[in-house]
């Protein structure tokens, strides 16, 4: 038992080290477009892990991710843009104090972005987490829409429909993968701890969980707030990565993309989320091709707008209809399963 833990720790360390080397290599050798895709993968994994914590492990069907992301993105952007830049940016109406003057380093800004999202998670969770299943989904969706309408209508805070442009692009691969790593470690720790067992127990049978002395509401609320925190972090990174945000960006579609990753990877599987996060981010980028016009020699093929989402939503339908458990179900890829696989191969030879 102890030996295995030590072995896993060493192997995980090696894996992280190897991945860091890969990032070094990528930074030097890959073009900007590929780097951008790698960045998006990291952010999407953060977002999907946080939704998987809320929905896959704690069983709360939330459709509010876009709202938490918006809160995170706006908070972070307001903090990392220098006051002078904000002065030039707010052309509808001047920015309100303290938004006009506040300024913080990127790390602090991202943490505060997460905290603001977590606070919003608690505020909305207090009333709606008592609702079960689909009603919770629709209520959290309502919350996200309200956030979007607010972003449109509070020009002194959000610059209204224009949003922000020229947000400092601090979110490079190191920041993104750093946060991705932190999210991963924390979520893994949580779900593998006895606290995680309690969360899963609430998901599986709330009545029995209460009989076991678990204050189910408080546990739900905590898990929801932690999930919201990382959704806020993901939103903050995304804002800095894209350098521009506006209310239109935080439509339900954004939540849908994250939900798609979680469902495709498997509800309650962390390795599944990571795999699906990579595949779906790449797929989404790759599908942009069908929307852009292509000229091959003499031939001009016009782009088909909307085709990307047609393919994408069909993919979701296929998964939910034919492989509901996603890629991994609730299973995980661990060192044990990896070794078992090698051993089997060895025997076959």
């Amino acid at each position: 038992m102890e030996d295995k833990r030590k072995r896993n720790l060493i192997l995980n360390g090696l894996l992280v080290g190897a991945f860091a080397l890969f990032l070094f290599w990528a930074q030097v050798n890959l073009d900007g477009y590929k780097i951008q895709i790698m960045n998006l993968i990291a952010v999407n994994i953060i977002l999907a892990l946080s939704l998987n914590l809320i929905y896959g492990f704690a069983g709360m069907f939330s459709l509010g991710h876009a709202g938490f992301m918006a809160i995170g993105a706006y908070t972070c952007a307001l903090l990392i843009m220098p006051p002078l830049q904000k002065q030039a940016l707010f052309i509808l109406e001047p920015a309100m104090w303290p938004f006009s003057v506040m300024h913080a380093p990127f790390l602090v800004a991202v943490i505060l972005a997460g905290l603001m999202a977590a606070l919003a998670g608690i505020l909305i969770g207090l009333p709606v987490l008592r609702l079960g299943g689909d009603y919770l989904g629709i209520a959290t969706l309502g919350f996200a829409e309200i956030i979007r309408v607010l972003a449109n209508n509070l020009p002194r805070m959000t610059n209204g429909a224009l949003g922000f442009k020229g947000i400092p692009d601090y979110a490079n691969i190191w920041w993104n993968y750093g946060w991705c790593f932190i999210t991963l470690v924390i979520v893994v720790r949580l779900v593998n701890s006895n606290y995680g067992n309690a969360l899963k127990a609430i998901r599986d049978d709330e009545v029995a969980a209460r009989a076991m002395g678990i204050n189910t509401f408080r546990y739900r609320l905590t898990a929801f707030a932690i999930g919201s925190f990382f959704a806020g972090v993901g939103g903050a990174l995304l804002g800095s990565l894209l350098t521009t945000i506006d209310p239109k960006m935080f439509l339900f579609l954004l939540t849908f993309n994250v939900l798609m990753i979680v469902v495709a990877g498997g509800l309650g599987s962390i390795t599944g989320t990571i795999i699906a996060g990579v595949i779906i981010t790449v797929l989404l980028e790759w599908l942009r091709i069908v929307e852009n016009p292509i000229t091959i020699g003499e031939f001009y093929i016009p782009g088909i707008p909307g085709m990307r989402m047609v393919v994408f939503s069909l993919a979701l339908l296929f998964i939910i209809l034919f492989r509901r458990q996603g890629i991994m179900g609730r299973k995980e890829i661990t060192w044990d399963t990896v070794f078992a696989l090698f051993r089997k191969r060895g025997v076959e030879k």
Binding site: N194, A198, D204
Partner: peptide, 23 residues
């Protein structure tokens, strides 16, 4: 305990007991 046994279906035997101990 419950008349119609209510175990946590997603967990192992050990995890079920651990949830009890979580309190």
């Amino acid at each position: 305990t419950f008349q119609n046994i209510r175990l946590f279906a997603g967990g192992t035997v050990l995890q079920n007991v651990m949830v009890g101990a979580h309190l």
